[in-house]
Amino acid sequence: MIGKVPKPGKSFGGCIEYNVLKKDAAVLYADGVRIDKVAHTIDDFNMQRKMNPSLGQAVGHIALSWSPNDKGKLDDEKMVEIAKEYLQKMKIQDTQVLMVRHKDKEHPHLHIVYNRVNNQGKTITDKFQHYNNLKFSKQLTLKYGMYMAKGKEQVNRPQLKGIDKLKYELHDTIKAAIKKVNNITELKKELAKQGIDTYFKFRSGTSEIQGISFGKGKYKFKGSEIDRSLSYSKITQAIQQNVQQRESEQVQHKQFVSDLKAAVQSQTSAFPQRQSTGGKSLLEVLLTPEYIEPMPYIYDTDERKKKRKKAKSDL
């Protein structure tokens, strides 16, 4: 399950009309609002928001999506059950809620509209929502035995928007840069070329790096918030492994060249000179990628039969 949490909005009318009037939309659950008419639903939300008129962005909107692999496990009742538990964990309680299921995509998904002005007129905070959303979405996915994709490979990136889109762009760019560099300083320089800022968190009173964050434009995220593999310790570990792998490959290549050179030197006198080497040594020719030893063309069995059959027919 994945939760998408856009910024709070100002218009209940626009949000509710988008969700309820969409083709094949189905209202699965409502608390504190009438659902006999769209106009009544909007009026009920707006009536409660007047209890806290200073809160301009009172419209809460969250989309919960599941993998197409979970279709067989999800009916309307189960989706509402999971959504209610999600709201409880997110501390979105004691307020008006509307849950609407859409069927315009291959994957099951549910839209939640809620009033950030609760039933007592107090504001429901939106602080740390993105972090909590990731945390609780994963918890509920595991609890209900839903499909858990490995990493970010199967995410439909063209469908992403806003902060989610930016996080995946940062993820892909940072992952690619890690493969090129030899240390964390080089990583910072490489990312700077692509407009990404790198920030380090140091242990109090020391120069020891304890954490890492990345920023682009006005947004800044901890590495682990983008992906668990992008914490400072995981990044430094990945860089070290890449460096060791490159060094190992270089050693293997040098050994290969050395062994080939020794073999060529020992066989030079017996090796027939079939073609001009253009002034290059035999070793240089063998190490040229384009070098291909000429091979006689051999007809396969079927082709030889066809040739004989044709020859007989021409007689």
Rank of each mutant, 00 (worst) to 15 (best):
Y131M: 15
S229H: 02
E290P: 00
L166E: 13
V20S: 05
Y131Q: 15
I178N: 02
G121H: 06
L191Q: 08
Q273K: 12
K135P: 00
K122Y: 07
Y232H: 10
T288E: 03
K127I: 09
K305D: 10
K306L: 06
I82W: 01
V80D: 02
S67E: 05
H61C: 01
G3R: 03
K261D: 10
V181N: 06
K23N: 10
M146D: 05
H102G: 09
S213W: 09
L98D: 07
L287E: 01
Y131P: 01
M1I: 03
K135N: 04
L28Q: 10
D36K: 14
D24A: 10
V264P: 00
L160F: 06
F202E: 07
A83W: 10
K254R: 13
S207M: 11
K312D: 11
K122E: 09
R157N: 11
I174P: 01
K305E: 10
A63E: 02
T141Y: 03
T41E: 04
E190A: 15
S229L: 04
K216F: 04
E290S: 08
L187P: 07
Q210M: 12
K103S: 12
S276R: 04
S54G: 11
Q210D: 14
M47P: 00
Q48I: 11
K105W: 05
R308M: 05
E169V: 09
K105F: 06
Q245G: 05
Q129M: 15
A63Q: 01
R203Y: 04
K103M: 07
T268A: 12
G145N: 12
D172S: 15
K307N: 04
H109C: 12
T141H: 02
